[in-house]
Design a protein around this nucleic acid. Sequence first.
DNA 1: TATAGGATTGACGTAAACGTAAAAGGTGCG
DNA 2: CGCACCTTTTACGTTTACGTCAATCCTATA
Lengths: 154, 154
Amino acid sequence: MKLVSAGEAAANTNDIPAEAGEEFVRIGEMAKKYGVTLRTLRFYEDKGLLNPHRDGSTRLYTRRDKARLKLILLGRKVGFSLRDVKQMMDLYDPTGTNTKQLRLALDKSEKQLARLQKQRALIDDAIGELSNSMKTVRQMLSERTAAPQASAAG
Amino acid sequence: MKLVSAGEAAANTNDIPAEAGEEFVRIGEMAKKYGVTLRTLRFYEDKGLLNPHRDGSTRLYTRRDKARLKLILLGRKVGFSLRDVKQMMDLYDPTGTNTKQLRLALDKSEKQLARLQKQRALIDDAIGELSNSMKTVRQMLSERTAAPQASAAG
DNA sequence: TATAGGATTGACGTAAACGTAAAAGGTGCG
DNA sequence: CGCACCTTTTACGTTTACGTCAATCCTATA
C-alpha cells in the first residue's frame, strides 16, 4: 500500500490520497494542527492514548485520532491526568450506549471540579497573604527611603 | 557542652536548659511544632535554608531557625519555590537596612502575584469547561435512561 | 548524488519537594 | 541488659509530561 501515488500540484511534499475521504496526516502536520510537539504525540501513543495507523514505520493519523486528541487536550485543559483520560477513553464502545463510560466521566468530573474549586480557594488565600506581605514590604521600604537619616516616629 | 543536665519533671525525655533563654529544640519537636516532617527539616537544611546549631551531630534549633522556618512556610504557601525563598533569605543582613532584600522580595512578589492571578484565570476557565462537559454528559445519560427501548424524537 | 527535510526508536534529563528505606549511634527506663 | 525511641547520614525512588539529544532511515528535489 503506497501512500503517495498521483501527486497533485500541492505545495506539500507528501500528498495525501483522497481515497474514500480517509484524510491521513503524518505526525508533523498533526502536531502543527493541534499545537503540540512530535514528542507529545509519540508520548500519548506510548501511553496508549493514541493509536495511529502505520505506513511502514510512519505514523498516519485519521480523523478518529484527531477526535481522540481533541478529547485528550480538553481533558488536560480541565486538569485531568493522562491516566484519567485514558481510563475514560478505554471505556468507549462504538457499539453500545457507553453508559459506563459516561458515568465514570461524570464521577471523575465531579471530583475534578471539587479539586479545582479547592485549588481556587488556595490560590485566593495565597493571593491574600501575598498582598499582605507586599503591603508590609512596601511599608518597610518607604520608611527606609522616606527618612534616611532622621529616625521616623517610633 | 552537655545538652541535658538538670532535668525538670517534664514528660519529655530530653529537657532543654533554660540557660539564657536560648530555647533549643531538637528536630522532632521542631517538626511537630510546625507540622512538617523530619525529612523536610533536613531537606531545607540541605538546601541551605536552615542552619541549626549542633550538639555533636544532633541538630538544635533556636528561635532564629523558627523565624526562618516560618518565612519558608509562608513563602511556600504563596507559591514561591524554595530557590526563591533562599534567594531572598540570603540577602538578609542583620546590620543593614536590607533594602536590596526588600526590593527583591517585592519584585518576586509582584511576579508571583501575576502568576497566581493567571492560574486563577486558568482554573476558572477549566471550571467553566468542565461544567459544560458535565452538563453534556448528564444530558447524554438522561437520554439513555429516559428512553431505554422507545427511541426518542429524532 | 549530495543535501535538506521529515520520520523513527531509544534513552537519559528535568522540575519540586520530599518519601522511604537502610544501617547505625546515643539515651533513658525497667 | 535489652528494648524503645530519637537521631544521624546516605542514597535511591516517586510523580507527571514531556524535552533533548543521538543515531539512523527514507524520500524528494536540485
